Computed example of a mutant assay.
Amino acid sequence: MKLVILDRDGTINADSDDYIKSPQEWEPLPGALEAIARMNHAGWHVAIASNQSGLGRGLFDVAALNAMHAKMHKLLAAHGGRVDAIFYCPHTPEDGCSCRKPLAGLFEQIGERFGVELKGVPVVGDGLRDMQAAAAAGCEPHLVLTGKGAEFRGCALPETFPPGTRVHEDLAAFAEHLVGRPAPRPQA
């Protein structure tokens, strides 16, 4: 199975320091929905792994989160795309959970759900925590220069990023890279 794991805020949709709390605030980044559809059409399954500490902070509830995701699904469908599963951590940093990125818990849950080995699975995100979680799970880290990643435009990544982190202008550029590369060989 060809699986790619995406971060949500700052990767697929615009991010906010005040959190994305409602469907009205959830706005896709230019080209992001088309990029997901392109990956789908090339045979890739897409899962989302997202820290959503706004839930734990009481800034929005699960109904609001579900409404945001319903909007995303509807807009994606209009572009011929889909997300196969959404995994999120509702905890705050103080909760000490194992699912909050930079830990690998969400990725491990995705691997279990899809029955896949995570080694080499591409992960796309806009921040250091996304890349650290990807590396911790044995995945292939890809940073997009949108959202929090915009601060790294035109400069080298700090050494805090996992070795081998690849950088892409945005999700559309990542999709171009992913669809254009040779398919992975099945493991014997």
Rank of each mutant, 00 (worst) to 15 (best):
P93Y: 08
G58A: 11
D95C: 09
V116A: 13
H142E: 03
A134G: 12
P158I: 11
E159V: 06
E112H: 13
A104K: 15
G43N: 14
L75M: 14
L143Q: 08
P141I: 07
E108T: 10
A42D: 14
G56H: 07
G81F: 11
G54Y: 07
M72S: 12
R100V: 10
D84P: 11
E117A: 15
G147P: 02
V121W: 01
G149E: 00
D84K: 13
P102D: 05
L55P: 07
A78I: 05
G105M: 06
C97A: 11
G154F: 00
Q52I: 09
G154Q: 03
L143V: 03
L128A: 06
P93S: 10
L145P: 02
A63Y: 00
T160S: 15
G127N: 15
G164E: 09
L75H: 06
E108V: 13
F107M: 13
K74E: 15
P141Y: 02
K101M: 06
A78T: 12
F107S: 00
G120Q: 14
K74N: 13
A47Q: 04
D126W: 01
P102Q: 04
K101V: 09
H79E: 14
M68I: 11
K119I: 12
G115N: 01
H91L: 10
L118I: 12
R38Q: 15
Q132W: 05
G105Q: 05
G138C: 08
L75T: 04
H91G: 11
I48L: 15
G149K: 00
M68R: 04
V116W: 13
N40S: 09
R100Q: 07
Q109D: 05
I86E: 01
E94R: 09
G127M: 10
Q132G: 06
G138T: 13
E140D: 15
D130W: 06
V46F: 05
V123M: 10
P162Q: 05
G43F: 09
A78Y: 01
C155H: 03
A104Q: 08
H69I: 09
P141Q: 03
G127F: 01
H45Y: 05
A47L: 12
A104R: 09
L65G: 04
E140W: 05
A136N: 07
P141C: 07
F87Q: 05
D61Y: 02
K119T: 14
R82N: 03
E117S: 12
F152G: 00
P90L: 05
V123R: 02
A135R: 14
E159D: 11
N66K: 15
R113N: 04
Y88M: 09
M131S: 06
P141F: 00
A47K: 08
A85M: 10
E112R: 13
S50T: 15
H69E: 02
G138F: 11
G149A: 03
D130H: 07
H69Y: 06
S50Y: 02
T146L: 01
A134W: 07
G147I: 03
G138Q: 08
V83S: 04
H41P: 01
C97N: 14
G80H: 03
N66F: 04
